[in-house]
Design a protein around this nucleic acid. Structure first.
Length: 942
RNA sequence: GCCGGGGUACCCGAGUGGUCAAAGGGGGUGGAUUCAAGCUCCUCUGCAUAUUGCUUCGCAGGUUCGAAUCCUGCCCCCGGCACCA
């Protein structure tokens, strides 16, 4: 009984594993390597279900690979720099360092309670100077190579976080952390040249196994577009500017050009003219508008004429220069050629301000070049109305090439690939991050701190809450210039914490090295990460920065690795139902359950929603471990859904899984109490189990963890139940399957596996966790037949039960006996020749003449048989699975099998007797042979 | 608007041409066990039915001897990007 069973002492097993250093990776051994990694967590004080799911997946993979003979590197660490600790320090007092250390200690303990097989000896934390020293070292190298630069530029500023943000950290005009509005500010900031690797980042996506949607996300973010820069001279001046276009084929239709009001030339163009006031107004409006408001006002196109004209590079015509609020200063060149006939925005703009619209493409070959235009026609088309010879009639890419060639020969344009991705703004006006290792000197400018002076450590004498904290540290800011020795001032900005997480996976390969960031041979041998698991929320920040960094470090000569992660798995959300208003489409907090919707007063329903503190639908892992143990929580979380799918938390399902755990816990003892003899069923269970091991490894190889767990924790129990039902009770057989079974359950419920393992009379290793799973062998043909015979009985019983229900209604009471009518031999013969025919590539339709030639079809029943083929046998031939087909073609004798099992069948169906007869034979008095088919006999109850 | 992923029974969720009325789990149902509840085990869980037939995998068509699966069009959901020239 479950209540009498002692729970598994999980903590004791965890201690034993740790004492034995079981999971410490030996990076210089000769086993094949496997690097398994989860995205390292930010150390908030508490582990949440998302963590549990993430690590349960990773741990299952790590344990599996270890079992399969790989040396597995499976480390854990903390992304411990960042604003939450700093904000906590400000609101609650204390120091970010102490808060972080405290939180780390508490979450570490919770993670360890789950029994994950991490190599804790190489734990890293990004706020450790031994780690961030290398951030600084990389930065100085980037500075020297020009990859890191300080620039004055309009940047994203979040007022409430009091810092600048990278483009990637602005979501719909709002801060990714606090959701506050983001404004544009001109500031001098540090940038890293992400676009330098844009093409490689794009191409690299082809060679790595990332989920399709992550790749698509990254492609969007990189934003490659092919086009041309085209030069326009300003009339009556030496000035010229360039526009970027992806549609050079529409150049002849450019009836004006539009510049962003912030375009560097814009002020000069209007300075001292009547247009200056208008320009200033538009400029100020655009500059001061937060990106959020800008998106909101996206459709309100506004602009005005600058009073100046530009020269069309091919026709020499003069086209007016306009300013428009819809032109983005930082994309392309900050100016566009406006082709109202073939661009929707330009079309709207031209209509609004009555600028001529000139058709230069037609959408079907030879169409009317002067057809009126009611809307912009933006697709590729055939050139018309070109003002120069040699262009009309060209289409698409050919047209674009022709225009580009003409421009390039006049040096007024150039093909160019433009990227949406912009340099990575890495400086932050916050304290809790890596200090940027630069000293500003009045004579030498920004000078990197020399390697021997690294790390530049964070000072403790800072004041929080008054701007950039580092500026308040007197001990920090003053430093002599490393170059000239003169008076210098330290850079007070720190690095974006995404810098920390961009290379930590490399550091793990050599985490304790204080002389180098990592040894190249080690990193080369162990990279890339074979299996990387984490949340989708990092798809375009962390995963782009990390890929970038890997390439940048490679080019510093530190590794030979191109990509950090070979395969990425994004685990799904952990959800739980929460009150929901269907008519408002709003999820409410859990305390609203039972009351009506506060907006529309309708009763609330339930809907599954992401677990979150604000909704209140969270479940504490600690509480669940307390109740059921870590193994049960892990089993539930792996079994509830596929790793990538969203899963719903269900207390009922968790309990159900706990029952399975209890059942399994009792299993070795239960099996050891078997007292039976060897029986014909033994071979079946042994074979069946062999097949299960095979299926298990197949599932694990594709990271189909749900299926793997289903096999190890559910299917095998069912198999054993069947074996027992059929009279099997051989203790030797049980003892034979137990070791491998223990290994199978160890990937998801490792503590229970050790309990089993400990009881084994002969153990190859002291722990299940350190044992090797023998590679499964394929099931032989002979063994197939054993399985097939039993499968036949199971299928037969299922069918028999169905029929029995109906039959007993007819009989008006319980049936006492059954006559099993096997299919007549001619049906088997027909099936066999049809299967052979199709197997050899024959088309099912062509079997008819062959059947007509067969000896058995020559008698008076020919018509019946031909009809039977078309109506019954043809569909059935395809319904049989491969196994059934093999069985039909094999020597399996249905009669023999059923007769051997007839006692069992009778008792299982609650009958006194079961008789098996061959259909249409002398013994068959039932006249039911008509409905019997091979493998599917008719059953007559009486 | 563009890009990507989806829509399977009461719910979650397998399933990429025949093995499919459709795995597995949850829930429900009936039964065994029990003084009783829980636990555990078993049956059933689209409709009808002497073993078979009918209807069903977002909707509508098509290809095929055969479609949840392939093709075409449409609808809806989720995620991302978006005045990107």
């Amino acid at each position: 009984m479950s209540s009498e069973m002692l729970p598994v002492n999980e903590v004791a097993w965890q201690k034993k594993w740790a004492d034995e250093n079981l999971f410490k990776a030996n990076l210089t051994g000769d086993k094949p390597k496997f690097y398994c990694l989860e995205m390292y967590p930010y150390p908030s004080g508490k582990m949440h279900m998302g963590h549990v799911r993430n690590y349960s997946i990773g741990d299952a993979v790590a344990r599996y690979k270890r079992m399969m003979g790989f040396e597995v590197l499976y480390p854990m660490g903390f992304d411990s720099f960042g604003m939450p600790a700093e904000n906590a320090a400000m609101s609650e007092g204390g120091h970010p360092h102490d808060i972080t250390e405290r939180n780390m200690a508490s979450i570490t303990q919770q993670i360890k309670r789950m029994g994950f097989s991490y190599d804790w000896s190489r734990t890293l934390k990004s706020h450790d100077p031994r780690y961030y020293k290398w951030n600084q070292w990389f930065f100085t190298k980037f500075f020297e190579s020009g990859l890191a630069k300080r620039e004055f530029a309009p940047v994203n500023w979040c007022e409430s976080c009091n810092t600048v943000l990278a483009n990637e950290q602005v979501k719909a005009g709002r801060c990714w952390r606090c959701n506050g509005p983001v404004e544009q500010k001109g500031m001098s900031q540090w940038f890293i040249d992400l676009p330098y690797y844009a093409q490689e980042l794009l191409d690299g996506l082809e060679s790595i196994k990332f989920p399709e949607h992550v790749k698509s996300l990254q492609r969007d973010w990189l934003g490659r577009s092919e086009g041309a820069d085209i030069t326009f001279q300003v009339v009556d001046s030496d000035l010229s500017f360039e526009v970027f276009t992806t549609r050079p084929d529409t150049l002849f239709g450019a009836t004006f050009v539009t510049l962003a009001p912030e375009h560097p030339l814009s002020h000069q163009l209007v300075e001292g003219t009547e247009f200056e006031t208008d320009w200033k107004a538009l400029h100020d409006e655009v500059v001061n508008m937060s990106e959020f408001d800008r998106i909101k006002n996206m459709n309100k196109k506004k602009g005005f004429f600058s009073g100046r004209y530009a020269v069309h590079p091919l026709t020499g015509e003069q086209v007016p220069i306009w300013f428009g609020n819809f032109v983005i200063a930082t994309y392309g060149t900050g100016g566009v050629m406006a082709v109202p006939a073939h661009d929707e925005r330009d079309h709207d703009f031209a209509k609004m301000y009555e600028i001529p619209i000139k058709r230069v493409l037609v959408m079907s070959e030879g169409a009317d070049a002067d057809a009126p235009m009611n809307a912009a026609e933006v697709d590729d088309g055939w050139m018309v109305n070109s003002d120069l010879e040699g262009f009309d009639g060209l289409y698409g890419q050919e047209a674009r090439d022709a225009v580009c060639n003409a421009l390039e020969s006049k040096s007024l344009g150039m093909r160019r690939v433009n990227w949406k991705i912009r340099p990575w703004l890495v400086s932050r006006q916050r304290y809790w991050g890596t200090p940027i290792p630069i000293i500003h000197c009045d004579t030498c400018g920004p000078v990197p701190v020399p390697e021997q002076d690294l790390p530049v450590e964070l000072p403790r004498d800072v004041v929080f809450g008054q701007g950039n904290p580092l500026e308040t540290s007197e001990t920090f800011i003053h430093a002599p210039c490393p170059k000239c020795g003169g008076k210098g001032r330290r850079e007070t900005d720190t690095m974006d914490t995404f810098m920390d997480s961009s290379w930590y996976f490399l550091r793990y390969t050599d985490a304790l090295n204080d002389d180098a960031c990592f040894e190249k041979p080690l990193a080369d041998q162990w990279m890339n990460v074979d299996f990387y698991c984490g949340g989708i929320e990092h798809a375009q920040m962390h995963l782009i920065y990390a890929r970038f960094m890997t390439k940048a470090l490679r080019d510093l000569g530190l590794t030979s690795v191109d990509e950090p992660f070979k395969e990425l798995l994004c685990q799904g959300m952990v959800n739980k139902s929460a009150p929901y208003c269907a008519s408002c489409s709003v999820t409410h907090t859990v305390d609203r359950a039972g009351s009506p919707c506060p907006h529309c007063n309708q009763p609330l329903t339930e809907r599954s929603a992401k677990m979150s503190k604000s909704t209140g639908n969270t479940v504490s892992p600690e509480a669940m471990i307390e109740l059921y143990g870590a193994d049960t929580v892990r089993l539930f979380i792996l079994f509830a859904a596929n790793p990538t799918a969203g899963m719903d938390w269900s207390d009922a399902a968790l309990e159900a899984n706990h029952r399975v755990m209890l059942q399994l816990q009792a299993m070795p003892e239960q099996l050891s109490q078997w007292k039976g003899e060897a029986s014909s069923m033994d071979a079946w269970l042994v074979t069946r189990f062999k097949k299960r091991v095979h299926e298990f490894t197949d599932a694990m190889e594709t990271y189909d963890l749900r299926r793997a767990v289903e096999l190890s924790h559910y299917e095998i129990i069912k198999d054993i139940n069947w074996y027992v039902r059929r009279g099997g009770e051989n203790p030797d057989v049980a003892a034979g399957i137990l070791p491998q079974w223990a290994q199978m359950i160890s990937i998801s419920t490792p503590h229970l596996a050790e309990e089993w393992w400990m009881e084994l009379p002969e153990r190859s290793e002291s722990f299940a966790a350190s044992s090797y799973l023998q590679s499964p062998q394929l099931v032989s043909d002979e063994e197939h037949l054993i399985l097939a015979g039993e499968q036949y009985i199971r299928d037969f019983l299922e069918q028999a039960r169905k029929v029995q229900n109906i039959a007993e209604r007819h009989l008006g009471g319980s049936a006492a006996s059954a006559t099993v009518v096997l299919s007549p031999s001619w049906k088997r013969e027909m099936a066999r020749s049809a299967l052979n025919f199709i197997h050899e590539g024959g088309h099912p339709k062509q079997f008819v003449p062959i059947l007509a030639q067969m000896p058995m079809a020559q008698g008076e029943r020919k018509g019946e048989m031909m009809g039977f083929w078309g109506k019954k046998m043809l569909p059935q031939v395809f319904k049989w699975d491969d196994e059934s087909r093999q069985v039909i073609l094999s020597s399996l004798d249905e009669k023999e099998v059923l007769e051997a099992a007839s006692t069992f069948i009778a008792s299982d169906l609650g009958l006194e007797s079961v008789i098996v007869v061959e259909g249409e034979s002398e013994d068959d008095t039932t006249e039911r042979a008509r409905s019997a088919m091979p493998l599917s006999p008719a059953i007559v109850y009486a």
